[in-house]
């Protein structure tokens, strides 16, 4: 029953080339709230800063500014060492996230002990066994004795999920949990995560570059580009009627067997940035690739409402925001048609 509030999270990295120094803003004023029982997907390409956000929430990196607050069931702030009781992380690469030297049981027993969930050898082992059973690794006693190299990728990721749950975590950060797995076992792992979420009423942050699973396995989606959240809203809304030009580009680039032969159609925006934008500085980060870039884009856009709980950080929606929100609700399932309408409206406005 822990809520995690992320407010204006900023992470700057200093780049040194020779004597010159510059800062790279890996995350720029990222804000969202993780609520028990709901999944928020953080979507973006590699280098968009989504893993940086995850690592800051897991306290592997210190934010340059902004706050990450975990609120316990009593509404009080969780601080200090207790933070790790509440917030845990599942890593991307199950082949790297388990120590090859130790048994599976060791990976579960340590967090159980560290967080005082179990006392005594017998109870700890029993709890570890229960955790393994909950992630469908049965017989648990058999898996507990094994070492990581004796497990398949999917099985290892299940162990990693069990480890994240071992301290009794209520907030789980899943950083690309299935991207290293074979395609046929990905949905199994995602479904497992969804089931555990329902059982424990977990708040989940699902970080991925895959729009399709983001849509199916999350309630809300945040789209990140070069460190900024450019669009946020309910999962279906964001995917089916994307409002930010970048989200549209992402959605149109995903492979779609239904759209055979469309591959030769021109893309809605440049596939790659024309050149490096200054690492910091004002302005929309997407303007060098954006087909509808305008002079005003050199000022940083605010989050403009484009629908119920649906925001896009784009000047296209600066004034038409309130009018289009009604249209969006109607055009919701219409997918592409809705998007077209809106881009027209945007240009008009």
């Amino acid at each position: 029953m822990t809520t995690l509030e992320v407010r204006d999270l900023v992470k700057d990295y200093t780049l040194r080339s020779g004597l010159r120094r510059s800062t790279l803003r890996a995350a720029d004023r990222v804000s969202f709230t993780l609520v028990p029982g709901r999944t928020v997907a953080l979507v973006g390409e590699s280098g968009s800063g989504k893993s940086t956000v995850a690592r800051m929430i897991a306290r592997l990196e210190k934010p340059s500014s902004g706050s990450i607050t975990a609120l316990g069931p009593d509404g009080r702030r969780v601080s200090g060492r207790a933070y790790r009781h509440h917030v845990q992380m599942v890593f991307q690469d199950p082949f790297a996230s388990l120590n090859p030297f130790h048994t599976i049981e060791h990976h579960l027993i340590r967090p159980l002990r560290l967080h005082g969930r179990a006392a005594g050898r017998a109870q700890t082992r029993r709890l570890a066994g229960e955790l393994l059973e909950r992630v469908n690794l049965t017989p648990a006693a058999d898996f507990a004795r094994r070492r990581p190299h004796e497990l398949s990728g999917g099985q290892r990721q299940r162990v990693a999920i069990a480890r994240a749950l071992a301290p009794g975590a209520q907030v789980v950060i899943a950083d690309e949990p299935v991207s290293m797995l074979d395609v046929s076992i990905r949905l199994g792992v995602l479904n497992l995560l969804a089931r555990l979420q329902r059982e424990e009423n977990l708040a989940v942050l699902y970080i991925t570059h895959d729009l399709a699973t983001a849509r199916h396995f999350s309630d809300d989606i945040l789209v990140m580009y070069r460190g900024r959240v450019v669009e946020s809203g309910p999962a279906d809304e964001v995917i089916l009627s994307p409002r930010h030009p970048y989200t549209r580009l992402l959605a149109s680039a995903a492979p779609d067997p239904e759209a055979r032969g469309r591959s030769l159609e021109p893309m809605p925006a440049a596939a790659e940035p024309a050149g490096p934008l200054p690492p910091t500085g004002p302005g929309c980060r997407f303007r060098d690739r954006c087909p509808s870039a305008m002079p005003v884009c050199s000022r940083t856009p605010a989050d403009h409402p484009v629908g119920p709980d649906h925001y896009a950080a784009c000047w296209l929606h600066a004034e038409s925001g309130r009018e289009t929100s009604g249209a969006v609700a109607k055009a919701g399932p219409g997918g592409k048609a809705g998007a077209e309408d809106n881009s027209g409206a945007g240009r008009a406005g």
Binding site: A58, F91, P111, A166
Partner: peptide, 13 residues
């Protein structure tokens, strides 16, 4: 920089 070391840190070791 391996993930299992990061995981141990997240676990609170």
């Amino acid at each position: 920089s391996r993930d299992y070391v990061a995981a141990a840190r997240v676990a609170g070791e």
